[in-house]
């Protein structure tokens, strides 16, 4: 089963249902944040589908912690 397509379908359903809800809410800020998070998630799925190796958060953490580790030890 190709799970990415399941997730993309879910995201599309979500954007349809929630847009109606958001318009009723009448808050620009909520809508912007929602679309920002939605866009970020979509990018993440596409990145995962393309199997980009840079998208590994644990690698980012280890890169961030290298200078600090060198400070401590």
């Amino acid at each position: 089963m190709n799970w990415h397509f399941v997730l993309i379908t879910f995201l599309l359903i979500v954007v349809v249902t929630e847009t109606r809800h958001l318009i009723r809410l009448r808050s620009l800020r909520d809508m912007i944040v929602f679309y920002a998070v939605w866009g970020l998630t979509l990018l993440a799925i596409i990145g995962d589908m393309l199997e980009l190796t840079e998208l590994r958060p644990l690698d980012w953490i280890s890169i961030m912690m290298q200078p600090l580790n060198r400070l401590i030890s």
Binding site: L7, F10, V14, S27, V37, T41, I45, L55, R56
Partner: peptide, 23 residues
């Protein structure tokens, strides 16, 4: 400073899964 948070659950959950697959 949002008014409501429940609608963010859905994209966040998908993000969680993607992060889980990549960590």
């Amino acid at each position: 400073r949002l008014k409501e948070q429940n609608h963010l659950i859905y994209p966040f959950s998908v993000l969680f899964i993607i992060v889980a697959w990549n960590t």
